[in-house]
Structures are given as C-alpha cells and as structure tokens.
Design a protein around this nucleic acid. Structure first.
Lengths: 151, 151
DNA sequence: AGAATTAGTTAGCATAGCTAACTATATTTC
DNA sequence: GAAATATAGTTAGCTATGCTAACTAATTCT
C-alpha cells in the first residue's frame, strides 16, 4: 500500500489502521459485554478473577498493577469477590501482605462467564469459511503482538 | 488448519480464536484507556459523544440504543455532556423528544481524546515493517467484519 | 531505637450501570 | 372528543468502579 499508493503517507496509514483497530475493539467488547448481565459479577471483578485463575495467587498490589488500577480500587474489588466466595485471602510471612487466590467456585464462575462472552464470538466465527478462519487466527495473533508493543 | 490438523475440531479452533480476540481486545483497550485520564471526560461520555460527532444528531433513546445502555443511564451521561457544553439539546415537533447534537467544542474534544488513544496504537504500528502493516490493516478489516456478524 | 518505607484500608468524591416509578406529550380506541 | 394506551425522557435509589488523600500496621534502614 505505502508503495503502490504513494500519496498516502505511512503515518496517515498507521493512523487509519490504529483508529480502525481501536474502534473494532470497542465495538467487539461492547457486544460481548452484554452477556455479562446474567453473570451477577461486574466486569472489574471478572477481569481481576481471571488474573488469579489463569495467573495464580498474588498480592493485592500485584493484582492492582496487573489490572492497571490503584490499590484502593482493587481493595474494594477484592472485598466483593470475597463476599461471594470467589476469592480467598492467605496470610504470608510478611504480615502486611496477603496472597489472593481464586476458590474452586471462583474458577468455575470465571469459566462460565468467559464462555458466555466467547461463545458469542464463536457463533460468529462458525459462520466463516476455512480461509476466513485462518484470517481470524492471524488477526488474533497480530493483536496479541501489537498489545505487547504498546507503550 | 482444520484440514491439515484434523485432530483439532473446528469448534475448538473457533473457541481458541474467539478467546484470543476477546483477550486481545480487552488488553488493547485497557492500555489505550490509560490515555483518557488527562482528557477530563469519562469513557461513557466520550463514546456517546463520538456517536453524535460521527453519526450526527439523534434522540436520547436512539443514542441509548447505539450505546447499548438504558435511557436513564444515557439521560445522566447527556447531563454531564451538557454541563461541559460538549452537547446541546434541540427541540423537535414532538415535544417529548429532543435532538442531541455535538457542539463545535464537543467535536474538538472528541478528536483530541481519540487522537491521544489512537496515537498510542500508532506509535506501536510505526515500529512495524510494511508487511506487518498490511497484516495490521487486514486484522482491522477482519475485526470490523466480525463485529458486524455478532448476534 | 527511631526514621523511612511498604502493604493495605478507610473516607469521600465522581462516573456509570441498572430497575421502578414518575411526568408530559402523542396516539389509539371507543 | 374523551378516555385509555403508548412513548420520551427524568428522578430516585441502589450497586459497582475509578480516583486521591489520609490513615494503620508491619518491615526495613540508619
């Protein structure tokens, strides 16, 4: 593109693509998030829980960093997760710190919520041809790489 | 893939890809959203404003539907946007309805906020080769199509 | 021992989501 | 044309999620 259509500067092209990706991500998540209403768990709790389920136990501060929120915010999210027995605290040698870990129930709830979200995408993906599915896999892989490069 | 590796069922493959796309979209937005703090406008307001800027004036109910929120929620979002003079109400013949439209200031603020978000992506995209950039464009286009197919 | 640092919480504020119940206007029905 | 119904938006009140500032308790450094 940059070579065939020299009128389009690489920067403008990068901007257009960036805007597209941004917009697509917003609309994709807005759609799948509609599935969360039946879960009885908010998006922040669901996301924090997923870190514990897939990434293993960690301290509140680490969890806050992983979720890119401040410690007081995470403190309250954890209170909610504890109240519904999705997460448990474990004491450590350092008595200031705690380890947060998902309960079995937490893992189950997470997988169900995730399944509901992802299944919406899966239904759309199942309409695609084999070629299109390969395109989908490439898009997912590209997004993953790009996110790694951010900031 | 489905043909070469017949052990992997198309369904499992679709699930894996769906999960990837979902996860990538979450992480992408979490990163770019960090840019919003300096904007002095929340994500819901920003998103509603973008509908008005890019899609033109419409009623509160239509805006709520476009944003997939309930009317009372949109009512309050609009109050916030009005308070900061980013959106204006216009009366219609039907005195129950109103038309909401972005002000010039609203359009400017939106473009600035969007630019901040997108520029983060652009910085990452600018590190890519021409081939990779074409991959990026294909990924964006694919996502756009997929979102259209959702539910 | 005392000072500084670190982990987490509490308090207080704003935004954003919901449902239920309300007001005001339009439309339909008899 | 009046009464019933439907529609657009708001208000009230709840929960969840984000922040900063200020606090407590434990640990580490000097």
């Amino acid at each position: 593109m940059a070579k065939r259509k020299s009128k389009i500067s690489p920067d403008a092209e990068a901007y257009r693509i960036g805007d597209s990706l941004h917009s697509a991500a917003i609309h994709l998540l807005r759609k799948v998030r509609a599935q969360d209403r039946s879960a009885g768990i908010g998006p922040a709790q669901l996301s924090a829980l997923s870190v514990l389920v897939f990434g293993g136990p960690r301290s509140l501060k680490e969890l806050a960093k992983a979720e890119q929120v401040r410690p007081p915010t995470m403190s309250r999210i954890v209170v909610g997760l504890e109240r519904t027995r999705l997460v448990r605290r474990k004491a450590t040698d350092d008595k200031r710190r705690m380890l947060l870990e998902a309960t079995a129930r937490g893992a189950r709830i997470l997988h169900e919520g995730r399944r509901r979200r992802v299944e919406m995408l899966v239904r759309a993906l199942q309409e695609l041809s084999g070629d299109e599915l390969r395109e989908a896999a490439a898009a997912a892989e590209f997004m993953r790489k790009l996110v790694g490069k951010l900031s």
